[in-house]
Structures are given as structure tokens and as C-alpha cells.
Design a binder for these strands. Structure first.
Lengths: 208, 208
DNA sequence: ATGATAATGGACATTCTGTCCGGAATTTTC
DNA sequence: GAAAATTCCGGACAGAATGTCCATTATCAT
């Protein structure tokens, strides 16, 4: 009577995802082989290829699940938590704290050890978040919306990476403060010399 | 009398670097095998491993050469070209134009297709540039110098990537203007709502 | 010119990849 | 409940890439 929910398949996929996560923490993504994964998961060779086309497909599938979970969690809490309706960087505080809590996983995901695919997926997820937050506050102007989104996401990942690599001891709130300062006000406040926004006339046409 | 300059070795290395560059343009870095490279270069298997430990070593070697060339070129032109003694972003204009000129190579290097190694090497080179430019104008403050450098480099790469992927038609000067605007003044000028730098008290201790 | 040094190229064992088919477990049907 | 149909599982297989080894060949020093 229950539809073909294939319990076996679900079990297999779960085992593979778990193995991937475990091994990524141990060796990083690029260094992994399909052989390693099916060994760790104790799954047969063809079973793996029956579900995924390769390790990249498995990784993407994991992020796909994650994205759906996030989407649900987001629609469940409409717009109450966090000061989101006038703060264009509302995501950052919670995100830095989240990163601190799951530091191991974040390290393996972003530090180059995660590979291009991982970084790209994370970039997509963050881009979606930032785009929504920015859509309300961003004023149509000289700079394309998409450019701003990428700028913010890039700055966030840069901050995260710097934090983990160079100053793991800092508190999330401290990194968050530096991140917000740079992204909101730019370099101007931290530059000594006399310079006002004199010689950057901003792009004229072609706004997104 | 001439030192052991090993003409043969030089020829071999040149052929390998050339082959790597050609193939990276055609297939991207990750998809390349050592087999492909030695085929393209018409070089024997063990010859390759006599010189490099793998394709990653070959790639790094190429960047090593590039970095030395840049270092020489830089010391040759002390501080005249470009307004560098009070512009903290003096590198950007020339760099965007350079990127436009050699768009093919830049695309393969940064667009994820270049792989983590490539991006990391480029990041190192740019970091060195930015660090020097910033050292003169950056005021010791609440934000560690290194964080600022990474922020600028990240923003530059983001801009470059966005340019190539989304608006290849823009002029270097236009992208440069947007880049400078965001990095120097941040999001504030492009945000509608009322918000002053009210709730980011900036990190207190531990400056670099 | 001749011996010493170093680069070269092909062969080899090992490992990984992606596919195929027989066996086993689960769902459906009676 | 039991048997058929469907689907998943696991080991075997060919093809390809990796990194190493050694005999051969070209270059350098004397």
C-alpha cells in the first residue's frame, strides 16, 4: 500500500552521504575517490553508480537536500526573526554564529579543500539569501543588483575564510562587526590619507 | 664555460608549460590528465616526472615564474606609473584592462574552471600587490590589515568574475568604477532605508 | 675525443573508473 | 500467506591514468 518509497534506496543514500561527510572532514573533497566512499559506506560499486553518476553528483545531491531544508525553514519563519526589514546584512550575524558552531564542517567546505563545486554551491545558497534581503533595501542605482549581491557574498566568504585561517580565536560577533563595517562603509573609514569619493564617477548606464 | 643551463631541460619545461596553457584553454584545469599534457607536449612520461611531481607542481611552477617576472617589472618601475601614493586601489584600473586584453586566459584561470590551486595562486599574487599599496595609506585601526587585504582581493576577483560571466560587454573602466565605489564607500550609498553606522561597534582588540 | 653526467622514452605494476550480470530482498497480486 | 514481478545489491570485468624503473641517447667537462 505505501508507495514505492524504497526504504533500501533511502538507506543506501543516507549511508553514502554520511560517508562523504566523514571522509571530507578527514581528507578533503578533491582527494577522495569513489572507492574511498563506497568503502567507508560499505556499499557495492554498482550500487553507487545506480544512484549517482559520480562523487560530484553525490555532493550536489547533498546540497540539494540542504537547500530544500533551508527553503522550508525560511518559509516557516516569514520575516520576524532578526532585524531583516531594514538591515541589508541581516543574515551575517546568525551565519557567523552558525559557522562557529559547526566550524569543522565549514572549514572543509570553504577552505579550498572543499573544491570548486562545494564553493560554488555555497555561493548559490548565500546569493539567494542575500538577494532577498537586499531586494527590499537596495535602491535602483548605478550598480547592478547582481553585482552587489556577488560583492556581499564574496566579502562574507572572505571574512569566514580569514577568520578560520588566521584568527580562529575571535568571537563571531567580532568578525561580524568587521565584516559589516567594511561592507557597509568600505575602506574610507580605515584610510588615513586625504581622499574623498572624488575620482570614481561610478558606472553610468546598464543597470542589471 | 656556460653553466649547466641544460638547454634540453629548458626546452622540455617550456613545451610542458605551453601544453598546459593550451589545454587549460581548451578543457579547463581539473579535467586535464598528465597523459593529456605529455601527449600535447610530445614528451615522454618519465621525463615529465623527472621535472615535476604532477600537474599541480607544473601549474605552481608556472605561477612561480610569473611572480618573479612581476617582481622584476615592479622594481623596474619604482612608483611613477599610476597614482599609487595616495590611491589605495591603484592596481585595479590597470588590472581590469589587463584582464580585458587577455580575457581568454583570465577566464580559464578564475572561473572555477581553473581549480583551487590556480585561484589560490592568483590570490597570493594579488594579495602581495594590495598589501604594498595599502601599507602606505592604511591607518592602524580596529580592523586587522590582513583582513582588509583579503577583503579587497576578494572583491576584485568577485568583480572580475561577475564581469566575465554576466556582462562581458562592459568596458574595463565601467567595471573598475563600480568596484572602486563598492570597496571604497561600501553599500551605504546604494541603500535606500535610513541607516547610519549605528550598530556595528567594530572589533576592539587584536589588530593583526 | 672521451668519459661523466643528465635527460629521455617505453615498459611495468597498481589503482581508479564506469558497466554488466547473477543473486537477493522487497513489493504486489492472488 | 505464498508466489511472481520488480527493484536493489555486490562482485567481476575492461579501459585508462598514475607513478616508478631502467636502458638508451644526447650534452657537458676535460
Amino acid at each position: 500500500m505505501p508507495r514505492g518509497i524504497d526504504r533500501r534506496a533511502a538507506r543506501t543514500r543516507k549511508a553514502l552521504h554520511q560517508a562523504l561527510l566523514t571522509l571530507m572532514l578527514r581528507k578533503g573533497y578533491e582527494a577522495l575517490s569513489v572507492q574511498d566512499i563506497i568503502d567507508e559506506a560499505d556499499i557495492g560499486r554498482s550500487t553507487f553508480y545506480a544512484h549517482y553518476t559520480g562523487k560530484e553528483d553525490l555532493l550536489r545531491s547533498g546540497f540539494q537536500m540542504l537547500r530544500e531544508e533551508l527553503k522550508e525553514a525560511q518559509s516557516a519563519v516569514p520575516a520576524t526573526a532578526g532585524a531583516s526589514h531594514d538591515d541589508p546584512l541581516g543574515f551575517s550575524t546568525a551565519m557567523f554564529e552558525h559557522a562557529a558552531r559547526y566550524a569543522d564542517h565549514f572549514r572543509t567546505m570553504i577552505g579550498g579543500r572543499g573544491g570548486a563545486v562545494t564553493e560554488n554551491e555555497i555561493r548559490l545558497i548565500l546569493s539567494e539569501m542575500v538577494r532577498q534581503e537586499l531586494s527590499s533595501t537596495l535602491r535602483d542605482g548605478t550598480i547592478p543588483r547582481d553585482f552587489v549581491v556577488q560583492f556581499v557574498v564574496g566579502a562574507f566568504l572572505t571574512a569566514l575564510n580569514w577568520w578560520f585561517e588566521r584568527k580562529p580565536g575571535l568571537l563571531p560577533s567580532q568578525v561580524d562587526a568587521m565584516f559589516r563595517s567594511l561592507v557597509l562603509d568600505g575602506l574610507s573609514p580605515v584610510i588615513g590619507g586625504k581622499h574623498r569619493s572624488a575620482d570614481h564617477p561610478a558606472a553610468s548606464r546598464d543597470a542589471d
